[in-house]
Design a protein around this nucleic acid. Structure first.
Lengths: 244, 244
DNA sequence: CCAAAAGTGTTTCACTTACACCCATGA
DNA sequence: TCATGGGTGTAAGTGAAACACTTTTGG
């Protein structure tokens, strides 16, 4: 066999930070560990990468197995490989983050028991391993991409009101936005289709429903650059298929 | 031993895309492979991760061993893990990119032979494995970060002229920038210290030298966001220490 | 005095920001 | 009719973009 096999190998896992906006809060789906190490502690779902599956496939498989979540937006986040991050031995983890829309969420509920639970990202329990860093980094990335891509729409149902859209931005960014400016901007982008339907709930004017017109993740035009000429955005950062 | 060891393990490597701006061109440092697979083909430097070193340490070690490059800016890029990317067997690679300033570059020259060479990123030879994708992605990321962080200064010597600074931006972004606007903007940022010295070469007015005042990588204020209030940038994206 | 790169200001235009009231509905 | 959230416009300020000539030096 080739000389590759002479080297000792670390274990490789994938771990996924699953976000969803629930009841005007940004939540993360956690699993309570049933085995050592960190038995009883909460952790983000993940597991070992199979020898014949891509990293993203592995992440999706683990997600399905552990939380029943399928067909959602996923993106590679960062690879964590500090030698001591897993007491069992050298383990490198490729972290992903996933976004679940309000209307995809039943699936996550369909799991067995109390071992899977949504927590506010702003009030997490102590997490196993270095999972707290992973979640923190995922939040940073999500906020960042919210500003120049359409990732956010992955968190909304197909039909949504502008108020819901704005509320989603507000929870994630953890700050209030101006209603008129927000609407002006988002409507001027030409990525929303106004529907005939309205959503009426409660004793007030019904809200117009919209849908997101793009199939793919889109990035808005690049922010002002170093001197001269507008730069259309080259690539999309992250969201690569996976190797090759 | 813990159950971790029941799983077959992929090999894990680190590979680094090394950029430098040379003679008004953006170059990548490549190594000619001496062994199969892809013997004779050019590749980015890299190698297996040791069991007791962090990923970034591994990347730095390989860089030092293979190209004599040390003490340069490095940042994790992406992890490539398609099952078939290495014909020898399952190998996952954590890709990094490194930036070498003009005045740090001697080191890279100090290697043995013709086996290490700089190539224009705009005119690369065929590369081994999926290294072409890795370089392409590194370029995308570099361009992207050039627009909102100070990474670019890692490619310049301690003292530089505004023309050199602008030229660096132009090669990387592959487009011309307006001289007056560029200077106005970069000077208004308060990150440059004008030096007394000037650089005179050639039969023309000498250029004032500047130095970059910040020690750390800095990110400029966030681009305009979804409605209301300026958003100071939360984190820096990438450039995490490594795990934990 | 000529060639070559360094250096410098102003105007235009677009977009971000701040801000307050009327509208449609159900109860 | 009242309470509740939905929906709308304008003025001011900031910053990006476009653009051409003078300055300083060496030869």
């Amino acid at each position: 066999m080739p000389h590759t096999y002479e080297y000792p190998r670390p274990s490789v896992t994938v771990d996924t930070v699953i976000f969803s906006v629930i009841a005007d809060d940004l939540k993360v789906l956690l699993i309570r560990r049933g085995v050592e190490p960190f038995k009883g502690a909460w952790a983000i779902p993940g597991g070992f990468v199979g020898m014949d599956e891509s990293l993203e496939d592995a992440a999706r498989r683990e997600l399905r197995e552990e939380t029943n979540v399928q067909g959602v937006y996923m993106e590679q986040l960062y690879t964590f490989g500090a030698p001591e991050r897993d007491p069992r031995g050298r383990t490198i983890t490729v972290a992903y983050f996933a976004l679940i829309a309000a209307d995809q969420r039943e699936i996550a509920a369909a799991t067995d028991s109390d071992a899977v639970e949504w927590f506010s990202v702003y009030n997490l329990p102590p997490l196993a391993f270095d999972h707290a860093s992973i979640v923190e980094y995922a939040l940073t990335r999500l906020r960042f991409k919210l500003d120049y891509t359409s990732v956010g729409f992955q968190l909304l149902p197909k039909k949504f009101t502008l108020t819901e859209l704005q509320a989603m931005y507000e929870v994630i960014l953890a700050r209030k936005l101006d209603k008129r400016n927000f609407r002006k901007k988002v409507l001027s982008m030409g990525i929303l289709e106004p529907l005939e339907e309205t959503k009426m709930e409660g004793p007030h004017r019904p809200a117009k429903l919209y849908s997101f017109t793009e199939d793919e993740l889109v990035a808005w035009p690049q922010h002002p650059t170093m001197g001269g000429e507008k730069g259309p955005l080259a690539g999309l950062m992250g969201r690569r298929s996976d190797g090759a």
